[in-house]
Design a protein around this nucleic acid. Structure first.
Lengths: 133, 133
DNA sequence: CGGGATCCCGATAGATACTG
DNA sequence: CAGTATCTATCGGGATCCCG
């Protein structure tokens, strides 16, 4: 037991690896857009700015907490902008920033790929499932 | 309490919504590629086929369980192929299928976008964090 | 109206140990 | 070598209550 064990080495690798992941833009982006609600919010906002409650209604199934959380992180990343109108009652509008609009283009590309290949994937799945009862 | 409460209506919406999500190719794809290990496995395999242990070594930080799980689901989706050579000891090679290669192109596009815009995102974050202590 | 704060639960990643 | 089985700790996400 004098030298490093396999477990120790693997843990060390994991630590370095985690650091690598966190610093990797691609993974950061993937983490972001893969969030359950992000794509939906971005999609909803492509048609124009919306109020908080409008978003909640359009996305229909999101809890207030998650909607707020999603919007906050998107705002922090400069994907959406938040505009408060201090009327009574308060009015808050969300819209895509230029960066957000740009992101929606990427999302559109992903969407296109998905729709183009989903059939292949489904066939592969059916085949795979049929072979292993 | 005779009529439906807001909570009930939202839950109903959530159910319909979940069904919608599951049927939506885009979200299926996003779920898949956003998996922590999927992008790494696909990336590792772009250079050619690899053995199980080679993948484990290259990805360095993945547990056998997660690696197997990831490979299985990718195999099921027709993204990777699995070839067993019944020698002693057993040899198993994984490789990208044509569909997998195609997917790696999309992943490359995502990567390009990420690297192109990560700076903007980071600036936005710094700004946001600076404003709210 | 638009949220923040808090509690709670099920899902799941990962460690560990074992096997054909 | 290439996995499988089991257990546990963590944590995202939802419900609920409350405030400005």
């Amino acid at each position: 037991m004098a030298t490093t064990t396999a477990a120790q080495r693997r843990e060390q690798a994991r630590i370095e690896y985690d650091a690598f992941i966190k610093g990797c833009p691609t993974n950061q982006l993937l983490d972001r857009i893969s969030d359950k609600w992000v794509s939906l919010v971005v999609c909803a906002l492509t048609t124009g700015s919306m109020r908080y409650s409008d978003l909640a209604r359009k996305i229909a199934g999101v809890s207030p907490k998650m909607l707020t959380q999603t919007l906050r992180s998107l705002e922090r990343d400069g994907i959406v902008s938040r505009k408060v109108t201090p009327s009574v009652p308060v009015r808050v509008d969300y819209a895509l920033t230029p960066l957000g609009t740009n992101l929606s283009c990427l999302l559109a590309a992903v969407k296109d790929w998905a729709e183009l290949h989903i059939e292949q994937v489904n066939k592969a799945r059916a085949l795979y499932d049929a072979e292993s009862p």
